[in-house]
Deep mutational scan, measured.
Amino acid sequence: SELMNSSKLIRMLEEDGWRLVRVTGSAHHFKHPKKPGLVTVPHPKKDLPIGTVKSIQKSAGL
Rank of each mutant, 00 (worst) to 15 (best):
S1Y: 03
S1R: 05
S1E: 14
S1T: 13
E2I: 08
E2T: 09
L3T: 15
L3Y: 11
L3M: 11
L3R: 12
L3I: 12
L3C: 12
M4R: 06
M4T: 12
M4C: 11
N5M: 13
N5F: 06
N5H: 11
N5T: 13
N5R: 06
N5D: 15
N5S: 15
S6R: 03
S6W: 05
S6I: 03
S6N: 02
S7N: 09
S7G: 11
K8E: 14
K8S: 13
K8Q: 14
L9A: 04
L9P: 00
I10M: 06
R11A: 14
R11T: 12
R11G: 09
M12D: 06
M12I: 12
M12N: 05
M12W: 07
L13D: 00
L13G: 00
E14R: 11
E14Y: 13
E14L: 09
E14A: 08
E15A: 11
D16N: 07
D16S: 05
G17S: 04
G17F: 03
G17D: 04
G17I: 00
W18V: 00
W18K: 00
W18P: 00
W18H: 00
R19Y: 12
R19T: 11
R19L: 10
L20K: 06
V21G: 03
V21S: 08
V21L: 09
R22Y: 12
R22G: 09
R22F: 11
V23C: 08
V23R: 14
V23E: 08
V23S: 08
T24K: 10
T24V: 12
T24R: 12
T24S: 12
T24C: 12
T24W: 10
G25F: 14
G25S: 12
S26N: 13
S26I: 14
A27H: 15
A27K: 10
A27F: 15
A27E: 13
H28P: 01
H28I: 06
H28R: 08
H29P: 00
H29N: 07
K31P: 00
K31C: 10
H32N: 05
H32Y: 01
H32W: 00
P33E: 08
K34C: 13
K35F: 03
P36K: 11
P36C: 11
P36I: 08
G37H: 06
G37S: 05
T40E: 11
T40S: 14
T40A: 12
T40N: 06
T40W: 15
T40Q: 09
P42H: 05
H43N: 03
H43F: 03
H43G: 03
P44M: 04
K45I: 09
K45E: 10
K45N: 12
K46P: 15
D47N: 14
D47G: 08
L48S: 01
L48F: 05
P49Y: 05
P49R: 06
P49T: 09
I50C: 11
I50A: 11
G51Y: 09
G51A: 14
G51R: 10
G51C: 12
T52R: 07
T52I: 14
T52W: 08
V53K: 02
V53C: 04
K54W: 05
K54G: 05
S55D: 13
S55Q: 13
I56D: 02
I56C: 02
I56K: 01
I56F: 01
Q57D: 02
Q57S: 07
Q57H: 07
Q57N: 05
K58L: 14
K58H: 13
S59K: 15
S59Y: 07
S59C: 12
A60V: 03
A60N: 02
A60D: 02
G61W: 03
G61I: 03
G61E: 05
G61N: 06
G61D: 06
G61R: 05
L62F: 04
L62N: 03
L62Q: 04
L62C: 05
L62V: 06
